[in-house]
Design a binder for these strands. Structure first.
Lengths: 140, 140
DNA sequence: TAATCTATCATGGAATAACATGGTACTAGA
DNA sequence: TCTAGTACCATGTTATTCCATGATAGATTA
């Protein structure tokens, strides 16, 4: 399976430990069972992807000026790279979500994994329902 | 056979297991006997297609842009990717239909496979008869 | 042409493996 | 020593794999 797809809801325990859906794991290279995550720049969610994906993002940096005249980063790639973390998947197929990330996404005891092809997102059930529902979330 | 064609009705067992019509299987690449399915956005049916079809959809969301505004739920590509599942065909030529999908299509113990060229649909016999039955009499 | 054989197919049931999840033990740093 | 983080083990449930059966259609042979 080459892409992240479908939607799964898994439990998060007190330590922030949560299973990565098996189908997501199988899309990762077998020699590097880890993922990169970053708080979404546009929504209350966590973005996740294969670690090699970060390389592609960093290459974008080479084509842009790092800073504007005001001294602020002009390129979203700067924010992504500087805020991302790499989480290793343990032998049971789980990761530990950092507290800051859980707070950003409003996650407490459940996490919704949403496959988006080359990337995926992690939402709280409440936020996910709210956002997906507004965009004609119902299937018919 | 390069295209999905014709209509077949097969049995669905208690676990949602159903045979994929042999002619459908033969249209799939021999090195990837699996299909992607997604609840239809417009009808009470399941859409099915070759997995490479999903790759094309995901590429519409350009890599790094998916981490910004384009990765929002209102994007049709996001809807498809987040709702689709890849089902592998077992050695007996069967797939397992997820419960949610069966519910969406109103499938219980029988499934109607309808070939539509590059894609196909899976219906419940009742719904298929109701929708496709109109105008069927004019065929000859 | 008729009978038989063979391969493929659809289907059912049971054994097996994988998955998600909770808990405990261990390690290192403060 | 205490805490936080990590690795290891245990369990029930679900999903996947394997094997067996009857049916059908095509081919082969007499």
């Amino acid at each position: 399976m080459p892409l992240f797809s479908s939607t799964y809801t898994n439990k998060v325990d007190k330590k922030g430990r949560v299973s990565v859906p098996a189908s997501f794991r199988s899309t990762l290279p077998s020699d590097d069972q880890s993922i990169s995550v970053v708080p979404s720049l546009v929504s209350k969610a966590i973005e996740g992807f294969d670690c090699s994906y970060l390389v592609q993002i960093s290459e974008r940096l080479d084509n842009y000026d790092m800073l504007t005249v005001s001294g602020q980063p002009s390129n979203p790639a700067v924010k992504i790279l500087s805020r991302s973390m790499t989480l290793s998947i343990d032998s049971d197929g789980r990761i530990v979500l950092p507290q800051e990330f859980m707070k950003h996404a409003g996650i407490s005891d459940r996490a919704v994994f949403v496959g988006l092809g080359k990337t995926f997102q992690i939402w709280s059930p409440e936020e996910h329902k709210a956002v997906m529902g507004q965009g004609e979330g119902e299937l018919m």
